[in-house]
Amino acid sequence: MSSYILVTILLCGLVTWLSRVVPFAVIKNMAIPHWLISFLSFVPVAIMTAIFVESLLTYHAGHWPGFNLPNIYASIPAILAGVLTKSLLAVVITGVVAMALMRLIGWA
């Protein structure tokens, strides 16, 4: 492994580590203002929606995003499984099986 690769990995690890750990240390040692608690209380639903929607879109520099149709199609049975079972595992397995079937018959 070249030093170029090793140094890159170490520095990337450092910035990621700081992003993860510094907020814990800061929050531990300060009184959190009310507005910040209110703001942060929306992080879960906002970030999960953003991660999900990102996987349904495709980025094309300088153009409107396209749609990732295989992911959109596979999401439909996955969401149904969620509504019916309220089980995380069922959602994941249904989605993966739907995607594998689509690939098998050539839809995706």
Partner: peptide, 19 residues
């Protein structure tokens, strides 16, 4: 081809819905 790339999307669908 095994659809495993969708596992992570499926997981966030489930987590978002349950949330």
């Amino acid at each position: 081809q095994f659809g495993l790339d969708f596992a992570v999307v499926g997981m966030f669908i489930g987590l978002l819905y349950l949330q």
